[in-house]
């Protein structure tokens, strides 16, 4: 086996040509599928959400079943800002929602990251369900089971109205995704990102070489929380509605499945998994919800058994195999 050449992790400026592919696809999607831009915007939002999970799961190795807690916090923050406080400027709303989710992530993370394994899994799950029950109960603020209505968005930059076809929504989501992606890419390629990988691979050894494991994990968790909050806020703003299911256990599960299908620990996994999952869901659920559930279950089992690295891992293995055949 050929060893990959050592790359200076701090030098992250240039993008490889292959890295442009998803962006080209997303950009051309705008012109190719003008009737599906609402769905497209939601896919982009889930890509962002899955990428945020990748930060903690793929890089730091924190298995969380409660990532929806942060997504929902962002969604409700953005929604309540507009519906109750009258703050309907989208960009500042997005920033505020990200910050609020970041604070929630910091506080939750500070507590749960003392635990590992099943306990951590259960704590993340319990926090999400607790928040969902709280949102359900605080009907005055959240609309409870009926969802939060009355979210209105001012035009983006005061110019671009959010239209029925989702043109503005799509481009808005794409632009935010791109900006957050650049930040995430710089973070995971920094020395901080390297130390996260170290923690994932062998936590004890990282302790032994003097890495502040807990602090690094908490940092990663908070960053991921901000990203998830931004994704949630995008959903609230582009659909001008917040449903209670933004905080559900199912959403935490969905996003994890998307990430696994695409492949963890490479940021781009989210770009494969989220569209695959959502397009399959859109098509199969039309036939019957049982088909969809059975299909996604079988796909998940097959992925774990035969392609544990996800679609991207499969592609890499395939490429390595083709190369070996050539030489």
């Amino acid at each position: 086996m050929e060893q990959p050449a050592y790359q200076n992790p701090l030098r992250t400026g240039a993008m490889r040509p292959a890295e442009l592919l998803p962006w080209l696809a997303a950009g051309s999607g705008f012109f190719l599928f003008p009737d599906y831009l609402q769905l497209g915007a939601q896919i982009l939002i889930m890509v962002l959400f899955a990428m945020s999970l990748d930060m903690i799961l793929g890089y730091a190795g924190i298995v969380s079943l409660g990532h929806a807690a942060l997504f929902g916090t962002g969604a409700y923050t953005a929604g309540i800002l507009s519906a109750h406080i009258g703050w309907s400027e989208p960009l500042s709303g997005l920033v505020i929602a990200g910050l609020v989710a970041g604070v929630v992530g910091l506080v939750c993370g500070a507590v749960i990251l003392y635990t590992r394994g099943l306990t951590l899994l259960m704590l993340t799950l319990a926090v999400t369900i607790l928040l969902q029950e709280l949102a359900n109960e605080q009907e005055h603020w959240t609309g409870g089971d009926d969802g939060l209505q009355g979210v209105v968005m001012q035009p983006l930059f005061g110019v671009f109205e959010f239209d029925l076809y989702g043109r503005t929504a799509y481009l808005y989501a794409l632009a935010v995704l791109f900006v957050v992606f650049l930040a995430a890419r710089a973070i995971v390629n920094s020395s901080f990102g390297q130390s996260l990988r170290g923690i994932r691979e062998n936590e004890r050894r990282m302790h032994a070489i003097g890495c502040p494991v807990y602090r690094q994990m908490l940092r990663a968790y908070t960053i991921a929380a901000v990203m998830a909050g931004v994704a949630g806020a995008l959903l609230a703003q582009t659909t001008e509605f917040v449903a209670l299911d933004v905080l559900s256990f199912e959403r935490s599960g969905d996003v994890m499945i998307m990430l696994i299908l695409g492949g963890t620990g490479r940021l781009y996994g989210a770009f494969i998994g989220a569209p695959l999952y959502m397009i399959l869901q859109d098509q199969l659920a039309k036939l019957s919800p049982e088909y969809w559930l059975f299909g996604i279950g079988a796909l998940l089992v097959a992925t774990i058994l035969y392609a544990p690295e996800g679609m991207l891992g499969l592609a890499e293995r395939l490429r390595a195999w083709v190369r070996r055949e050539d030489s």
Partner: peptide, 20 residues
């Protein structure tokens, strides 16, 4: 544990579909 979680969740989805 992540792989175990996902494999068994996949089984649950299939089980729910079959039972429905």
């Amino acid at each position: 544990e992540l792989q175990q979680v996902l494999l068994t969740i996949g089984l649950v989805f299939m089980g729910i579909a079959v039972c429905t």
